[in-house]
Simulated scan of single mutants.
Amino acid sequence: MKRLAAVRLAVRDPQALAAFYTRHLGMQASSDGGTVRLGYAGEDAELVLCPGGEAYSHTRSYEYWKIGITLPNIDIAYQQLSNSGIPISPPQQFGDIGYMCHLSDPEGFVIELLQHDFEGNRPETAGDKSLPLGGGACIGQITLRCSAIEQDIERYQAQGMVLLSVQPVTQYGFTLYFLAFTTDTPPKNNLEAIENREWLWKRPYTTLELQHCPAAKITKNKNYLGLVIT
């Protein structure tokens, strides 16, 4: 079966940026010439940092949005990063989507931390304060924005991806679609079912998250070099 193996970003200083991900987010790094591959010890995708990037400042019109790191205990991760002086938003339950917070890396790329369980549903034993981010982290999502969702879903399904979840966020005017290379079946047949969401955040592989913004003009950015599917 194919897999979503990596997302490639062009950055100004791959080695310096990799140090942030290894020190603060617990990723492992390997170098190949000027390129650095980052990730966790699992079946999730890698983050590939390539040299030659421009100065980056994120805007909501860019096709590439973020990576999402899923983990058992977001409060441990938040406390660790805050204690290290890293600006990070306080964790909060975002509607019926998930318990999450956000930060940016030193070059300005957005990172989302997303807990396996909704606020109030987390097991008391979840997470280990002695481990980076409380342990159990993986790159759970790579998020792209789009305005022609039917075409994009058809294109990724033609490559073998399966649509696992559809999550309308009506108050902000967009809908989230999650696809993956998997034979897993969500607990509920209705892909909009809220019951599927905590199940989704516990998947050990990386999903492709498409944020459908119908009225948006999505623009390319030279820092986003594309997905790697193997």
Results as ranks from 00 to 15, higher is better:
207 T>Y: 10
218 I>W: 09
179 L>K: 09
84 S>N: 12
161 M>E: 09
116 H>F: 11
182 T>V: 04
95 G>D: 12
200 L>E: 05
13 D>I: 01
177 Y>W: 09
32 D>H: 14
68 G>E: 08
192 E>M: 13
186 P>V: 03
4 L>Y: 07
128 D>E: 10
196 N>G: 04
209 E>S: 11
227 L>W: 02
1 M>P: 11
13 D>T: 11
189 N>G: 08
114 L>H: 06
95 G>M: 12
207 T>L: 15
48 V>Y: 00
38 L>P: 00
172 Y>F: 12
55 A>N: 12
160 G>W: 05
55 A>D: 15
11 V>Q: 07
195 E>H: 08
81 L>T: 03
167 Q>M: 02
164 L>Y: 07
185 T>R: 15
156 Y>D: 06
98 G>F: 07
113 L>E: 03
108 G>C: 08
25 L>P: 06
137 A>T: 09
214 P>R: 06
31 S>E: 15
214 P>M: 02
5 A>G: 00
130 S>P: 00
222 K>C: 02
66 K>L: 12
200 L>D: 05
166 V>R: 14
185 T>I: 14
86 I>A: 02
131 L>F: 01
129 K>F: 00
127 G>S: 08
193 A>S: 14
142 I>W: 09
31 S>V: 11
24 H>P: 09
117 D>K: 06
106 P>S: 05
157 Q>V: 01
51 P>S: 06
28 Q>I: 05
162 V>A: 14
156 Y>A: 05
1 M>L: 09
211 Q>L: 12
115 Q>W: 00
211 Q>E: 14
21 Y>G: 02
